[in-house]
Every structure is written in C-alpha cells, then in structure tokens.
Design a protein around this nucleic acid. Structure first.
Lengths: 123, 123
DNA sequence: CATGATACATACTTTGGGGTAAGTACTTGC
DNA sequence: GCAAGTACTTACCCCAAAGTATGTATCATG
C-alpha cells in the first residue's frame, strides 16, 4: 500500500524531457560536478589516467574512473590501453566530445562576464 | 567519533573549483534538472507563474518555486508581484539571464547534432 | 457558504551522486 | 623481498536534491 511510485515522475520526465528539451539532454551527459572538468582538461589533448588525476587533485580515483566510464559510454571519449606493464591507458575525446568545446567556451565566457558583473556591484 | 567530515572534500572543492573552473561556476547556477528548462521557457519572454507551470507539466509546484527563488537569488531573473487578488506574479530574465541564451543555444545545437550522430549509427 | 483560482509554504520521505577506505594485479628498482 | 607506481575494483556510508502530500491566504462567483 506504500508503492505509489513505480517509475515516478522523475523517470517519466527523463524520458519525455530528453526528447523535448535539448538542454536536459546535454545535462544528462555532462552534468554533475566532475564531467565538465574532465572534458575541459581533455580538450587540451589526449591524456593518460595519471595525468588527468594530477590535473584534478581533488577528485577521488573512484569518481574519476566512474565518470570516465560514463563519458566513454556516452561516446564522448575513447579509452586506449596499451598491453604493457605498468599499464599505459590514454583517454582521448571523440568528435562528439570535441564538439562540446563550443558549449564549454560559451559557459566559460558567461561565467567570467557574470563574475565581472558581481565585482562591479560590490563597491 | 564519527565526524571525519566537517567540511569534506566536496565543499573544499566547491570553494576552490568555483574560482578555478568557470564551467563549475555555471553548473552551480544552472545545473540540476529544472533550471535550464525554466530559463529556456523564459527566454521567449516574461511569464507569470501559472504560465511557466503550464509549459512544464511535469514539474511539481515545490520544485518550481524552489528553483525560481534560487534563480532570483543568483540574479538570473526578477520577480514582480502586483498587489492584486488573485495574485499576479511575473518572472522576467535579467541581463545575466538573457546572456545565457548563448550557452543554452550552444547546448541545444550540440544536442541535435549528437542525436543525429546516434540515429545514423543505428542502421 | 463552500468551491475554485492563484501563488505559494512546509513537513516528511526517498534516491542517487558523491565520498571514504581498502584491496587487487603486475612489475621495476632498491 | 618488499616498497612503490599504475590503473583500477569493491564495499559501504552520508547527505542534499528531488519528490510526495497537504496546508495557507485572499477574494469572486455560484
């Protein structure tokens, strides 16, 4: 008798909204705290796992691979492992991933503009 | 004795990353499921509360005002209430809010391109 | 006088993203 | 022979965001 949910409005939305709203579509791929940052770092070129880790000192290893896997699943990057030891794994953006540069840049541009607006109001 | 966290890496990040990463800065303002959609609808022009609600059938009233308040707090929109009864409240984007059109459009453009890529691979 | 419209508010519950901690497999260097 | 580096994996926990449900104030209209 306490089962009112089943698939909930949340998931209903996910389905519906994904088809209607392109913004949500993007958010589902690059949303969250880490993904855009990972993409940002990879826009500079391919990197191996340890390099990404070094450029993001605050991320935990779990979060890092978790998101790398998801981004790979969403075809935003490809993983290449050379069968050597110690392992040598590189991550490279796909075309879809590189195309996100426009989005990332638009965001960055807005962010700097908005930060400016703020500091101008303070005095 | 179970308090290991205090402010946690999460919040440490929020602080640090906000200053370093413009993308995260944006995400903190327009991230989440609903905000970009609200903004999207308001880009077409000012709307009153009930109109926004109608254009987003799947959002709950709680979520709607909650995010409207946050967007107002972040200076992305302004709320104007006429002191009549029944209440008449309109929401309008600020300059900062309208400037997000670039970001939203870049996202939409990418989304459509990405959807195309997918449908081309399927057959 | 109670029902409906409008624009919320508030209490309570659930879910999943993010975090912590520890372990694995393989080899090179001391 | 064991510590250290590389690229993960696994188990478990916590909290904030999202969702559910219900209540509020005001007046107009039947």
């Amino acid at each position: 008798m306490t089962k009112i949910k089943e698939s909930s409005t949340y998931n209903a939305n996910r389905e519906i909204v994904m088809q209607e709203c392109p913004v949500t579509y993007v958010m589902n791929k690059i949303g969250g705290h880490w993904k855009p940052i990972i993409l940002y770092h990879l826009l500079a070129g391919s990197k191996r796992y340890s390099e990404i880790k070094k450029s993001m000192p605050h991320i935990t290893e779990k979060m890092l691979i978790q998101h790398l896997k998801q981004l790979e699943g969403d075809n935003l990057l490809v993983r290449e492992a050379r069968p050597v030891v110690p392992p040598y794994v590189t991550y490279t953006l796909t075309e879809a991933g590189r195309d996100l540069e426009t989005v990332i840049n638009a965001m960055a541009a807005w962010a700097y503009k908005d930060m400016d607006r703020k500091t101008q109001i303070i005095p």
